[in-house]
């Protein structure tokens, strides 16, 4: 019996039958247990050009999952394109920044009983096939939070020199702060279980989402793991590039991490059933 659809699992037998015939033949790459409820969410801000293919990719490679696009107050027709591509859409009334968008996904997943939750960026740089590997790793119970890293192990990812150096510096700082080797601290490709979701649904940094949440997870006693993934150059949009901006960003992040180290450790809101 397939119950991978979230709130939709009760919407009628025709859908379920449909889904059954669609999927039983398919080799679902993640997990032995096919009744695991999985949410794949995609935070997107003005990604109308790439969102469609990202959703198709996700639906193809994580077939049991519900795909949810979190539209962070886009000015273009990201939401319409996402619906066309067969995803559900949560629309934030105004742009709130990547952290708030991520957290919307965690809150939704937590409230609707999803056991696993994966996230990829809406700009098309994260292949969903790699996300399936991340989800499988979380499902196996070896980690609470798995991050897809461009730099772990050998890599063919070709980033500009300055950017790579920045990433290394970041990695060193975060690794020091968390006493754990984390190479790709700004990666937006992650998979997590309910323990990690519950933590992020309660408190999540708005501006330094990826970096600070790693620190938060480690300090809360979660097992964080990195897996090497191949990423593509982004289809749309640009990252911060100017040296001055990067330097300022680095400074801000350092401050945030320093303060983060001084924060009281919180008890996990959800400890799991084990």
């Amino acid at each position: 019996m397939l119950t991978a659809w979230g709130p939709g699992s009760h919407t009628g037998s025709s859908l379920e039958q449909n889904a059954d015939t669609d999927r039983t033949a398919e080799n679902i790459p993640i997990g032995k247990n096919r009744s695991v409820k999985i949410l794949v969410f995609i935070p997107a801000w003005n990604e109308a050009d790439s969102i469609g293919s990202v959703i198709e990719d996700a639906r193809q490679h994580v077939p049991g999952a519900q795909v949810l696009v979190i539209d962070d107050g886009s000015g273009d027709n990201t939401a319409a394109r996402a619906r066309q591509a067969g995803a559900q859409v949560a629309t934030l009334p105004f742009n709130q920044g990547v952290g708030a968008a991520h957290q919307t996904g965690y809150i939704y997943a937590m409230a609707n009983g999803y056991e696993l939750c994966g996230q990829i960026d809406g700009d098309g740089q994260h292949p969903a096939a790699e996300l399936a590997r991340l989800l499988a790793e979380v499902e196996s119970g070896r980690a609470d939070l798995v991050v897809g890293s461009r730099f772990a192990g050998d890599t063919t990812y070709n980033a500009p020199w300055a950017r790579r150096t920045g990433q290394r510096l970041f990695s060193w700082i975060v690794s020091t702060a968390t006493r754990q080797t984390l190479t790709d601290t700004t990666s937006g490709m992650r998979a997590l279980n309910r323990r990690a979701m519950s933590l992020f649904a309660t408190r999540y940094s708005s501006e330094f989402a990826e970096v600070e949440s790693l620190q938060q997870a480690v300090r809360a006693g979660l097992t964080v793991k990195e897996i090497h993934v191949d990423m593509l150059p982004r289809e749309q949009g640009t990252s911060f590039i100017t040296p001055l901006k990067s330097a300022f960003y680095l400074f801000k992040t350092l401050t945030v991490l320093l303060v983060g180290q001084m924060r009281p450790r919180t008890k996990l809101p959800y400890e799991g059933d084990q």
């Binding site: 979230g6 939709g8 859908l15 519900q66 539209d71 995803a87 859409v89 949560a90 939704y108």
Partner: peptide
């Protein structure tokens, strides 16, 4: 935003 999610397609 969560309220705006419609039923699964």
């Amino acid at each position: 935003a969560i309220e705006t999610i419609e039923d699964p397609p």
